[in-house]
Amino acid sequence: MTEIDKNLKYRLTENVVSRDIEGEIIIVPLTAGIGDSEDELFSLNETGKAVWGYLDGTNSVQEIIDLLGKKYESDKNEITDDVTGFLKELLSRNMIEAV
C-alpha cells in the first residue's frame, strides 16, 4: 500500500461525491471502477468522520494530525497511525488525491 507523505495535502478526487445524511458521511462513487458493483456506497467510522472534514487540500497530513491531537487529546502516535491508515485506504480506493 502507498506510504503517506505527511507534508502532502489531500483532497477528494472527482471520482466520488460525499454526502452528510443524518450525521453519517456517505461516499457515493461517481465514476466507473470505484465501487465493486453497481450498487455500493461507503460510510466512514468515527476516525474517518473526524478526518474527512479536513480533506479539502488546505491542510497537510501533519497539520491534520496536529489538529486532531489538540481536539481529542489522544496519544500522538495512535492518531498518526489512524490518520495515515485512513488516508492509505482512501488512496487505494482512488477517493483522494494529493494536491
Binding site: I26, I27, E40, S43, L44, E46, G48, L68, G85, L90
Partner: peptide, 12 residues
Amino acid sequence: MDRSKFVEKVKP
C-alpha cells in the same frame, strides 16, 4: 479513536 475499519461498504 475508533480503530475498526475506516471505510465500509453499505447498502442504504
